[in-house]
């Protein structure tokens, strides 16, 4: 079975669970569970949760979607998820500047832990007070208009819109793979 693992990350309320639910063929599993041994040493009562969705489109091919935990200060589950991801998407609610700082922190964390291709998905772009793409990119730490990850608007409640966002991520993944073949990185 060939499996591709995509991680959907972002601040609480960005639409991660809805995004996965919109496209998953199984009921999204909210994997509330006890922390593992090492984590429990740090926080004995910590439970962590992540969303899991699946899309099987051929007898031997499936897409797995993982949503990062909602807890603002929890990171070990992110680490496990991102290290296993083929690619990931940062979802950001375009009308909630309060979360930009945190989104930036997530991004920084992810980029330190993984070189997997990334795109940014903007949700809630129809809400009042929505920031435009250019300004959100600056707020996320991409001031150079020529150097930033692909960015796409997505309605997390619409399967079609989510499909388009995933296709954008796949396309970017494919381009990065192609580039890596042409110019292999010296080391990972």
């Amino acid at each position: 079975m060939e499996i591709m693992r995509l991680v959907v990350t972002g601040p609480v309320g960005a639409g991660k669970s809805t995004f996965i639910r919109s496209v998953s063929e199984i009921d999204v599993v909210d994997t509330d569970r006890r922390a593992t041994d090492e984590a429990s040493l740090l926080k004995p009562k910590t439970t962590v949760a992540f969303d899991f969705g699946r899309l099987q489109f051929s007898p031997d091919m499936a897409l797995h979607l993982y949503g990062t935990p909602g807890q603002a200060r929890f990171d070990f589950m992110w680490d496990i998820l991102i290290r296993r991801a083929h690619a990931y998407m940062l979802l950001v609610a375009a009308h909630r500047p309060r979360e930009f700082h945190y989104a930036r922190r997530i991004l920084s964390f992810m980029q330190r832990r993984s070189r997997a291709p990334l795109i940014i998905g903007l949700t809630h772009t129809d809400q009042p007070g929505t920031w435009d793409e250019e300004n959100i990119l600056i707020a996320l730490g991409f001031p150079n208009p020529d150097r930033h990850p692909p960015i796409v608007s997505v309605d997390a409640t619409e399967a079609g819109s989510v499909a388009v966002a995933i296709m954008t991520l796949l396309q970017h993944y494919s381009q990065v793979q192609q580039r890596n073949v042409e110019q292999p990185a010296p080391h990972r």
Binding site: E2, M4, V23, L55, F57, S58, M61, L63, R83, R84, H86, A159, G160, V162, A163, V164, I166, M167, L170, Q171, Y173, S174, Q177, R188
Partner: peptide
């Protein structure tokens, strides 16, 4: 950790997703 996804996988998945749009 370093595994990649095949091009045929990507092509199949894109075709599948296009039906959802």
């Amino acid at each position: 950790h370093d595994s990649t996804v095949s091009q045929s996988f990507l092509n199949n998945l894109v075709s599948f997703l296009k039906h959802k749009v």
